[in-house]
Design a protein around this nucleic acid. Structure first.
Lengths: 199, 199
DNA sequence: GTCTATAAGATGATAGAC
DNA sequence: GTCTATCATCTTATAGAC
């Protein structure tokens, strides 16, 4: 039953994948339906059939990216209980993005264009960052608990700040890295942070 | 003598200023000569008279931004000898950019589009970051010297990594901040870093 | 220096044939 | 579902009048 729709489904998926990479490279304001059509080997009108507007397509692309990321975070939670190891894997996820064509994080690019984005795309970008912050805060909290188990002063907002700090470094280091030395630069920056934060 | 050219000079300057703000908001791939013309109140052809191509205009805009930044760094060096104070002022410089219309750093935006930029624009962006890294490394080195004056192991590349780390946080925190809470978020992230780095 | 006029091509989007 | 054809608008850039 599903096989009969495989051709359509495949085109839909190809558009989402190619659009994601184009946005990572050119940004929302810099990519076009023409770019997608030549890469997928279809006509512009076909893209409009699946995604009536550019903002709708972008919303779907970001939602997909966000969901993929969430899924990976759940995988990490299942893989290990060691919070330090979780952080290492998390940093590796960003490094993997950079390794592929010097790409930056999709939501890092969209954050740069944030004030010009359609409302629903903005919402997806915000959701991506807040989900990541929540996951990181949880990990950082558990590390702090291990370290100062007998100390009473546990400042909630401090752990949250540390999560935002880690997120900022990852997004910022991706930007810096491709203007300077690439992956090795990203690696030395992020490792330096982990050392300084005792993570 | 110079007064006779003031009208021309003024238009030239206005174009540079407006183009800078447009790139900070829309990016290189997202701004147009039409955007500039309506804001300055001139025709597109007039812009082409002063700046024949978009890439030339952008190169000039980034060079100007970079020189202004360098000048401010020299001012800071003249203002104080306290390295901690220098860092504080430096962070404040980024915070000031964010405060104005939720702008991000011009070179942060261009770093996001880096792989799609004309060669000479790329060069200016790289120069901006390396100049800032050098200035920060110098400051960090002097702080480390104060702290461990009697220790022999001074790792040069460590201070450099710390400079790149600080730069990454500043660029990354600007991105994060405008998707989430704005200046207060930027402030809590950067203060958290300075505390952790003992800067 | 700044303007009007215009070029040649790209943009997001729609109508209708197959 | 995908195509061709077309739209109105926007893009960077140039020629030539004032």
């Amino acid at each position: 039953m599903e096989k009969t729709l495989s051709h359509q489904a495949n085109t839909y998926e190809q558009i989402v994948i190619v659009a994601k990479e184009l946005i990572q490279t050119y940004g929302y304001n810099g990519f076009s339906y023409a770019d997608i059509s030549v890469r997928v080997g279809i006509r512009k009108a076909t893209i409009h059939y699946h995604f009536p507007t550019k903002s709708y397509l972008t919303k779907i692309v970001v939602a997909r990216y966000r969901e993929n990321f969430s899924k990976k975070l759940r995988d990490v939670d299942r893989q290990t209980d060691d919070p330090h190891r979780k952080i290492q894997i998390y940093v590796q996820m960003y490094s993997d993005v950079l390794k592929k064509n010097d790409n930056i994080c999709l939501c890092g690019m969209l954050a740069a264009e944030f004030t010009t984005l359609p409302e629903d795309v903005r919402w997806e970008v915000q959701k991506f960052f807040s989900e990541n912050e929540e996951w990181l805060t949880k990990i950082i909290k558990s590390i702090v608990l291990l370290k100062v188990a007998d100390v009473v002063t546990l400042d909630e907002s401090c752990d949250q700040d540390e999560a935002w700090l880690l997120l900022s470094v990852l997004e910022g280091a991706m930007l810096i890295a491709r203007t300077n030395e690439g992956v090795p630069r990203f690696y030395s920056i992020t490792q330096r942070l982990l050392k300084r934060l005792d993570l």
